[in-house]
Each structure stands twice: as structure tokens, then as C-alpha cells.
């Protein structure tokens, strides 16, 4: 008899992220194969592995953009695989996302880009102004608030992207190859920023194939290879 999985996990202090025997196949090729993984609240995890190892697929599952073929995914105790499509936007409001290609709106100012998640939630103009200013200050680009993304350096664009991801105080921050377009100096800056965000209590998951990032961060490393989890190694500073 198949194991019936609940819609939520209650009781105690639930894990922030839980994957239970998760598999995903594309054209019969396993992008993820029987992955079971727990990430605690407030943890900083590096998801490492070469291109095509399943890192992005795993992150996309956490925001409900992909459904596993087998297994269950829980975020903050909620079974993402059982969410209705109308509930997914509300899950995403709790998760900040940062991408390699920044994904900023080119025709909107830095301020408007960062304000977008708040606007979507119907925040008041006063709240928007306050929170956007805080987020821009936190990432150090407050002085560029009225500029268009095209006028910013790549490092600044990534900072704006981080500001947008943290502006509504997410419980989890997911970053998919956030330093892929950055030089080592900027990589270091962005990773320091993630550490600061993590220090405030946000769970941070960074997917990367860059060994430099691993060396800089010195936190828990989860390795994926051809969709399978490699036994973990913990590196502490």
C-alpha cells in the first residue's frame, strides 16, 4: 500500500525544507533520483554539483514551478506537491528567489523593481517606501534607486535582485547560480550579503557549481550528481 503523505506536517519545530524520496524524470532521464533531504530553519546550505545535476530542478520544486514524479516536498511544514495552483503564489511570497540572469524589469527603476513583490501583495505606499528603502540599504544600492537596471554594473544588478528577494521578509531565500555572471570579487560580496541575510534568521539555499563559493562560505554542503545525493560533508569555519 502506498504511503499516504499529509498536506502539512505539524507539531514541534518543523524543518524549513523537507524532500522525501523525491524523483523527477525528463524523457526517462532522472533529473532527481530518490532525493531525501532536510534543511532546518535558519540554516545556510550550499547545493553543489555540475550543470545538469538537478540543482535547479530541486529549487524549482521548492517554489512549486515543478512537480516531482515521486515523493513529497515540504516547505515550512506545507506539502508543496499538494498545493492547488491558486495557492502557489502565496507560497512564493514567503520565498525570495535570486537568479544568475537577475531577471529585473528593464523599463522599471531599481525602486520599482524592488517594490514589485510588495505591490503584488497589495502593500500600502508607506510600507512599500519603507521596506524598499530598507532592502536597498541592506544590499548597498540605495543611492541607485531611481536608475534603470541597464545603468547598473552586474554586481549592482545582482544586489538589486537580492533586495527584491528579501524585501518582504521571506522565510527562505533561494539562489540559483547567483554568482555565475560575477567576477571573484563580486562573488565574495554577494556571498557575504547572503551570510548577513542568513544571520537575520532567513534560511538560505544557494545552488552553485563554483568551488570558490564553497571555499568562501564554509557551511553545510549538499552535493548532487546526476540527480542523486552524494553523502554529505559538513564544512564549518
Amino acid at each position: 500500500m502506498p504511503l499516504k503523505c499529509p498536506e502539512t506536517i505539524s507539531g514541534g519545530d518543523p524543518q524549513m525544507i523537507q524532500l522525501i524520496h523525491v524523483s523527477k524524470y525528463y524523457n526517462r532521464r532522472a533529473a532527481l533520483a530518490d532525493v531525501t533531504l532536510d534543511i532546518e530553519k535558519g540554516e545556510f546550505v550550499l547545493l553543489m554539483g555540475p550543470s545538469g545535476s538537478g540543482k535547479s530542478t530541486l529549487l524549482r520544486m521548492l517554489i512549486g514551478a515543478e512537480q516531482p514524479d515521486d515523493g513529497h516536498v515540504f516547505v515550512q511544514g506545507k506539502n508543496v506537491t499538494k498545493l492547488k495552483s491558486s495557492e502557489i503564489p502565496y507560497l512564493r511570497r514567503k520565498i525570495g528567489t535570486v537568479f544568475q540572469d537577475f531577471r529585473l524589469l528593464p523599463k522599471k527603476s531599481v525602486f520599482d523593481n524592488v517594490a514589485l513583490p510588495l505591490l503584488v501583495q497589495g502593500a500600502s505606499p508607506v510600507d512599500i517606501r519603507r521596506k524598499v528603502t530598507e532592502a536597498l540599504r541592506a544590499v548597498g544600492v540605495d543611492h541607485k534607486r531611481d536608475q534603470l537596471p541597464i545603468g547598473l554594473s552586474t554586481g549592482e544588478q545582482q544586489r538589486v535582485c537580492v533586495a527584491r528577494a528579501i524585501v518582504n521578509g521571506p522565510v527562505v531565500l533561494l539562489a540559483d547560480e547567483p554568482t555565475g555572471n560575477l567576477d571573484p570579487g563580486l562573488t565574495s560580496e554577494i556571498m557575504e550579503l547572503f551570510k548577513l541575510i542568513n544571520a537575520r534568521g532567513t534560511t538560505v539555499v544557494v545552488a552553485t557549481h563554483d568551488p570558490l563559493v564553497m571555499a568562501q562560505v564554509n557551511r553545510r554542503v549538499v552535493k548532487l550528481d546526476q540527480g542523486m545525493l552524494v553523502p554529505e560533508q559538513r564544512v564549518w569555519a
Partner: peptide, 13 residues
């Protein structure tokens, strides 16, 4: 691209 971003940050349909 803009629509994808909106989806990503939790915009409803």
C-alpha cells in the same frame, strides 16, 4: 520575461 518574474514573486493569476 516580465510575466515570468511576476509569477516568481507571487503574483496571482
Amino acid at each position: 520575461d516580465e510575466l515570468a518574474i511576476l509569477r516568481l514573486i507571487g503574483a496571482t493569476t
